[in-house]
Simulated scan of single mutants.
Amino acid sequence: MPSGINLTGYERVWEEPVFSSRITIKKIKEVKRAGFDAVRIPLALSYLLKQPNFERELRKLAEASIQLDVQVVIANFNHGLSEEDLTQTMETLSQNWERVLQIFPANQGNFYFELANEPELSPDTWYKEVNRLVPRLQQIRKDIPFILGATNFNSLFELSRMQPWSLEGVIYTFHYYEPYLFTHQGTAWTGPQNSTLDIPFPFNPSLMPKIDSRAKGTPGEVNYRDYEKTGNSIAIEDKIGQISSWARRNGVQLWCTEFGVTQNADEISRKNYLEEVQKVLIQHQIPGFVWEWEGNFGIKNLKTEK
């Protein structure tokens, strides 16, 4: 079972990234030395495919990953799927993947394609569109598994309400950032609800800070009140156990392609959380990918067990 990590940066279109196989291969070697044997690489395909050297650089990465004996997930970020312009955005998604699929060597067993990270479509729309798209792409490549998640930010709860697609060669994924109050504490983009800092994991009443005044009257106030029940290993086992049971009942393969906690949390709590989630995933035989190696959730300098 692979121990995975996200190598982020190429999904951040606002930073105008330029894809470099040399830099990415260097990072793969770093994470391999740290004990990881699988990487998930978020790529803004619609943005990167406009760069003249992207396909050549991606081919170099594919060839190097075979030599390095590392499993690689190519995850499509910033895909722009929308209900308002569904026909065009789905066609763009398909065309982008048709180009990318042909870059990777056949029958290697190293590569996986995650079609659309956290699709912002209705569950019914996404279900129908996947049934149209995947068979079309499998006509090009039948040997590489496709990774599919549910809507609502790859929610495990949304996934557990789904009937699996009647498709071959599919791996199901979910993201795990529960409890959000802890994992996203102090993150500006999530707003006042997560403004309370110094929240420990696991819950310890003697270490709990006072709730930040900005969080009062938001969902963060309720989450703060309930943290005694949500901030512990029992809650993690309960949630991951639910989606694990769904996968077993339906006879499908399941991965967790993102789990992590912001660097705003203290180091001991971060270690406790990451190791606890990893332990539960291993118990349920679910491959997991930490978010992320470098960045505001980065663990590059955090020593954790894997």
Rank of each mutant, 00 (worst) to 15 (best):
M1G: 15
G4P: 09
T8R: 02
R12G: 00
S20P: 01
T24C: 08
T24I: 09
K26A: 14
K26N: 13
K27V: 09
K29F: 02
R33L: 14
A34W: 14
P42R: 04
L43V: 11
L43N: 11
F54D: 00
F54I: 07
R56H: 13
E57Q: 14
L58G: 08
K60E: 15
Q67E: 11
L68A: 06
L68G: 08
V70E: 02
V70C: 04
Q71M: 06
I74V: 08
A75W: 03
S82E: 01
W97S: 10
E98M: 15
I103E: 08
P105D: 03
Q108F: 04
G109H: 12
N110V: 02
Y112S: 10
E114L: 07
N117Y: 04
E120S: 14
D124S: 04
D124K: 05
T125D: 00
T125Q: 01
R136W: 01
K142R: 10
K142C: 07
G149D: 05
A150W: 02
N152F: 08
L159H: 08
L167C: 12
G169F: 12
Y180T: 00
P192G: 07
T196V: 07
D198K: 14
N204D: 14
P205C: 02
L207R: 14
I211T: 01
S213T: 03
T218W: 05
G220W: 04
G220K: 03
Y227L: 13
N232V: 14
S233K: 11
I236W: 06
K239P: 05
G241P: 11
S244Y: 04
S244K: 05
Q253G: 04
F259V: 02
F259M: 03
F259A: 02
G260H: 08
G260Q: 08
G260A: 09
A265I: 08
E267N: 02
N272Q: 13
L274G: 12
L274D: 08
L274E: 07
V277C: 07
K279L: 05
L281D: 10
F289Y: 10
E292G: 00
E292T: 04
I299D: 00
K303N: 14
K306S: 06
